[in-house]
Amino acid sequence: MKLFNPAFAQMIKQDLRRFKQLLETGEITTIKGQPSGRKSEQQSDKKSSSNYAEADEKHESAML
């Protein structure tokens, strides 16, 4: 019987990856806020560079 939802393991893995980045390089790698040709992102105050970045963002909020 699995104690946790498999998605939870993935979330922990992502967080550990970011923690490792911070420890090793002093920053967390990101593309959030970079330019693209997507009009929706250019007009929006909340800049996100892709739906993958959005997924990361949602994941972060879920962890808070």
Binding site: G26, E27, I28, G33, Q34, P35, S36, Q42
Partner: peptide
């Protein structure tokens, strides 16, 4: 498109 900006210190 918008100009790029510094997002991280490096």
């Amino acid at each position: 498109v918008p100009d790029p900006t510094i997002l991280n210190p490096k």
